[in-house]
């Protein structure tokens, strides 16, 4: 176990180093003068342009710049936003809780809905309900979040005024539409996954034994099948967390919600590069860590993984 853990950590570390190199290099891939890209459409004298270049250390060699950059990153200094001069880390820490809230809320929706629908579909395998549900799930996966969000806003906020479209993060009602938008596709994906995991288990022989013992189908489903199908399902749920996190990039923009995804998108639109570097780095780090934790959890519940 420790051996596996060590190897997994080492891999993650090497990936994180790669991530840092890529985000660092980002600014230098930009065509044209990075300083001009940095300041935008403003009145700036050529002297000030040089000053900014000096301040940002853009006249040093690349490896030197990378070392400077990493020194700062490790000490928690991700630079300052070009637009408002705020420390990038501070902005990120401020936005992160909202994204976490939204992700958790969506996770609850997608997990409960996904497991419920998937289990029901499996229990009624090959019935008309199962077929309708299967089609519904493919449709659900295919709806672009920004289109679903638009329809939800149109029906629930604009037309019927049932729910706020853009409530403050403190207002739980405002969480509903964004969370459904974010979680819906994942719920459908999970439902398919749960259905097929259960069907896999159902095809195994012990079901027939249980049936021979005279247990009801529902009792078999809940007491035997779900017990064994839980490993793939737990993994699926933790993978979902990561996908939802990525999805929040678009969903936060649709609903004008506070959050790190929207911070990243606005930073990209403004070409506020320190902020772009910071948000992209943090999202990637969270992504890598979540994947690592998922893998480790998987190894904990399923000993075969450790040995491979």
């Amino acid at each position: 176990m420790w051996n596996y853990l060590g190897r997994r950590m080492l891999t993650s570390l090497s990936i994180l180093i790669g991530v840092s190199v890529l985000t660092f290099l980002m600014l230098h891939f930009v065509p044209g003068d990075p300083v001009r890209a940095l300041i935008g459409r403003q009145s700036v004298t050529p002297e000030r342009l040089e000053e900014i270049r000096e301040e940002m250390g853009l006249n040093k060699s690349l490896p030197e710049q990378y070392i400077d950059y990493m020194k700062k990153v490790v000490s928690g200094d991700l630079g300052r936003s070009l637009k408002n001069n705020r420390p990038v880390l501070e902005s990120i820490m401020e936005q992160f809780p909202s994204t976490l809230k939204l992700t958790f809320f969506s996770l609850i929706i997608s997990t409960t809905l996904g497991i419920f629908l998937g289990a029901t579909a499996a229990a009624t395998y090959n019935s008309w309900f199962d077929r309708v549900l299967s089609f519904f799930c493919i449709a659900g996966i295919s709806v672009p979040p920004f289109f679903l969000g638009l329809l939800l806003i149109l029906f629930f906020a604009v037309r019927n005024k049932l729910l706020p479209a853009v409530a403050s993060t403190n207002d739980w009602r405002g969480m509903i539409l964004p969370a459904v938008t974010l979680g819906f596709g994942e719920a459908c994906w999970l439902a398919r996954m749960v259905r097929s995991s259960i069907l896999d288990e159902m095809n195994k022989n012990y079901q027939n034994l249980a049936r021979a013992k005279g247990l009801s189908e529902w009792s078999i489903l809940w007491n035997h099948v779900m017990l064994n199908a839980r490993i793939p399902i737990i993994t699926a749920v933790s993978i979902q967390f990561v996908y939802l996190m990525a999805g929040s990039v678009v969903v936060e923009s649709i609903f004008a919600r506070q959050g790190i995804g929207r911070l990243a998108v606005t930073a990209i639109q403004n070409r506020d590069f320190p902020l772009v570097q910071g948000t992209v780095t943090i999202i990637a780090v969270v992504y890598v860590l979540s994947n690592t934790i998922t893998d480790i959890l998987y190894a904990v519940v399923d000993p075969r993984v450790r040995l491979s």
Binding site: V280, I283, Y287, V288
Partner: peptide, 9 residues
């Protein structure tokens, strides 16, 4: 490393 970035990001 590339996969460490969510697709849309």
């Amino acid at each position: 490393v590339l996969m460490a970035f969510p697709g849309i990001l």
